[in-house]
Amino acid sequence: MEVNVLDIKEEVKKLNALLCYQCGTCTGTCPVARIDTRFNPRRILNELKIKGIEEVLKMEEIWYCIECFLCMEKCPQNVKITEIFFKLYEEAIRRGIKKPQKYVGLFKAIYSTGISTGAYGGRGEPLSGMILKKRETMGLPKPKISQDAAKKIIESTGLNKLLG
């Protein structure tokens, strides 16, 4: 089954990107912007309008969003800020502009084992014998994971070609 390639411009428009009136609520509330001043969601939204998507996709900062959804919750114009970042990520990866290590790590784990055991720092390894033993001593059942299903799904959308 073919996966439709999204029209990124339309998608971003659908998420109300053009409605932003630059009030700065997002940047003011952003936990990342609090620490790293390079990241400014308001400015990124402005640059989407002024420079266009192609330029924004090349910006390193766009990857700094930590997906906490706080800006989206507070946005007075109902701009789906976090979801706009998602669309930018999808497009940047699809176009081969960036292959972020964080996602490559997660992808590898899930592709090969069906799950990713490493929420912390994006590393992942299959459930090791040691863990399984420990579970057994604690009286916890052995998890049954259908490894191949994840692989099949990832291949069906072609994500393996983009991140592998």
Binding site: E67, F86, I110, I145
Partner: peptide, 13 residues
């Protein structure tokens, strides 16, 4: 027979 919930990919695919 579960697999990863998909969450890590929500933002990229």
């Amino acid at each position: 027979d579960f697999i990863c919930c998909g969450f890590p990919f929500e933002s990229i695919s």
